[in-house]
Nucleic acid binder design. Structure first.
Lengths: 218, 218
DNA sequence: TATCTATCTTAACACTGTTCAGATTGAGCG
DNA sequence: CGCTCAATCTGAACAGTGTTAAGATAGATA
């Protein structure tokens, strides 16, 4: 191991072992979040450690605590951004389509695509025990993502608000379950592009099965 | 912390700190599995540690390695039994109903009921990274559970095998996603019986929405 | 310029999983 | 019965982990 670069002096100052930045990092929050994202992307959710994130940011293992409290706090920040990105992807997917059913279909594909493209981040987002589960911003971000389904689905049902809630829960459950099962390799390998494409085709069929061509389901 | 009794010098007359069993436990495999199940039930999947399981079984932290190789091996055994129990619950749920749609509906309820009643075990079963993912018996047990859906769904579609696969993937995805989201508190509190009952009612509506009364879906 | 305060480090603590040499023991065999 | 042997388990160690407390550093403020 032993990441820390060798020496690189700091002008007259003391030749600290951490050359890139001095005592005051300046953007440590962002650096830690970026480092965490990198770990999640490279090695998955389980590989994340606070110390490794600190190492990559070039600070001591105790430094993150001043900004995020603890490891859960840091991952919570990562999860919030993940939910924001997911919600954006869902909204964008829907905005690109015309019919209500096509919007929902596109959202489903976008959801699983997001999960398969950012597995570590996705798993972290839904690992409450590793997050500050009752964080207000986290809950808000999560609700916003779920809300993206409701918005589209409300048009589909056209019925009561309760019916829309049910339909949204159904849609979210289906794509979330599919994504989770896919990530656990229940639908075949997900490590290569070919496998992922095949899985997305399976998803397409699943969505067509549950939400048939417009009209058959009122 | 510091569980182990204080000192109990060994001298010639042992007074071993571990009174219950001697060097040879006799049923250590089962004891370790039972201990692991207890941890999962009491404190959830993330709380499991190999050392705690060994502690509860009354052996040293190194003992489990002789039977399960490592922590993943032990959890794999737990997961296999969990899949067996799940498959049994799914088969039983279906056997109690007549119509095909009612069978599928009952299976869906049974699946989520299982997840909510054994959250730690359920989360472990679907945490591949904590298991020996390529273990033959584990894969077989997992496939058997998924197969329980196919058996029922095949009747529903009555079409090609591919169609049955799609329908089974849809059913599994939906209930799995619902269970996972419920466990992550996306549908409200799941810690009390009242919350759980409400969630099961939501599930009932979701299933009715996706698989409407028999006939409307061919 | 002097002080204050946020930021970061160092060092320690209590854990964790895993490994390896060695102690213990039950079972089979003479 | 007595011996050997292989299975079983311990003890101690190692390299990690997250978190904390006390202190060093340095940017901002007065």
């Amino acid at each position: 191991m032993k990441k820390r670069a060798p020496a690189a002096k700091r002008s007259t100052a003391p030749t600290r072992p951490r050359p890139e930045v001095g005592y005051h990092h300046g953007e440590l929050q962002e650096a830690l979040i970026a480092a965490s994202e990198a770990i999640l992307a490279e090695q998955g959710a389980e590989a994340f450690t606070l110390r490794e994130a600190a190492r990559r940011a070039g600070v001591s293992p105790a430094a993150p605590s001043h900004h995020f409290g603890n490891a859960q706090g840091l991952l919570t920040e990562v999860a919030i951004r993940g939910y924001d990105a997911l919600a954006g992807a869902l909204r964008e997917a829907a905005s690109g389509k015309q019919g209500v059913r096509d919007k929902l279909h596109a959202q489903g594909l976008a959801y699983v695509d997001y999960a398969l493209r950012h597995p570590g981040r996705f798993q972290t987002m839904f690992a409450n025990k590793r997050l500050v589960a009752d964080d207000a911003r986290l809950k808000q971000a999560s609700r916003a993502a779920g809300h993206a389904f409701e918005v589209v689905v409300a048009e589909l049902t056209g019925g009561t608000a309760k019916e829309a809630k049910t339909a949204a829960a159904a849609a979210w459950s289906t794509v979330h379950g599919f994504a989770k099962l896919a990530l656990e390799e229940k639908f075949g390998s997900v490590n290569n592009e070919a496998g992922r494409r095949e899985i997305m085709m399976t998803l397409d069929q699943v969505l067509n099965y549950l939400w048939p061509a417009s009209g058959t389901r009122q």
